[in-house]
Nucleic acid binder design. Structure first.
Lengths: 143, 143
DNA sequence: CACGTTTGATAAGTATGTCAAGCATGCGGG
DNA sequence: CCCGCATGCTTGACATACTTATCAAACGTG
């Protein structure tokens, strides 16, 4: 197995002529596909094997690996599972998550807000309420 | 403005009896939608405002918030950006960051109390009040 | 060489995400 | 009263993700 099979990449297609899709994600998609393929081959899996593990068709996996499509969360998750990777690694590879630490918002100045937002023990409604209270407090003070 | 007018949720449809690895989507989608809506309202944004920020149509945002659709990565990312959240928080909310290690939650859990205690912008009374609210929330959530 | 098997790639069809336009409702002013 | 302006919700058309069925090449067997 694993012979130099028929690998053909139809040249780097960065067609962003029409403005429909967000420009420039082809690079990330390619990176993601390469990464997935590498991991798959590392695990000595064929497309079909992985397909049966992920319940995603081999054909689509092939297309994803070659950067022809942007897989959805479901598929991404399945793939990560089959390859024994965390979804975060996959997303990170595609550049969709800013990084593991990643605090795009105000992390240092608004530590409390951030903590509330990230707290997994709160339901959405509770979050709203708590943040509302907190903000009213802070707004009332000198700020 | 901001009066909750025509609101209708078409019953909770949780029909996922098959043994697929990704079973139980509707619940997650609903959670995600609720979270997004909560955050949006927190930021005092209307659907249309957010739509213009995210370059996603208001209609679709509405549907996503109500759990009628699963947004793609692009859209998710845009939303996170508009709400000044990291994509990971969104994904975490929906429970998509399973991963093998996946200790996103436990690491942050408990950080909220700490953040509140340390927050220099709160007066002692406010601190007590906020902690009280937070604790009541967490206590009610069957830890 | 015929044969079956395994591999990755392609074709055409189906399901689902996404948008632009229109609907319903509430609010303030003539 | 009606009217315009705000909001959120629904419809129907299109684009994209995804599937099932199939192909051509490489690897065996005898």
């Amino acid at each position: 197995m694993m012979t130099a099979m028929c690998a053909a990449r139809p040249a780097d297609d960065d067609a962003t002529a029409d403005g429909s899709p967000a420009a420039g994600w082809s690079a990330q998609i390619n990176a993601l596909g390469d990464f997935i393929r590498a991991q798959r081959q590392l695990a000595n899996l064929s497309l079909r094997e992985m397909a049966s593990m992920t319940s995603v068709s081999n054909a689509y996996l092939s297309q994803v690996e070659r950067g022809l499509h942007q897989p959805s969360l479901k598929v991404l998750h399945s793939i990560a599972d089959a390859l024994q990777l965390s979804t975060e690694q996959l997303l990170g590879q595609a550049g969709w998550v800013t990084g593991t630490g990643a605090a795009t918002a105000s992390a240092e100045s608004g530590g409390t807000e951030d903590a509330i937002r990230k707290d997994p023990r709160l339901s959405p409604e509770q979050r709203i309420a708590l943040l509302g209270v907190y903000r009213s407090f802070v707004a009332g003070a000198t700020d």
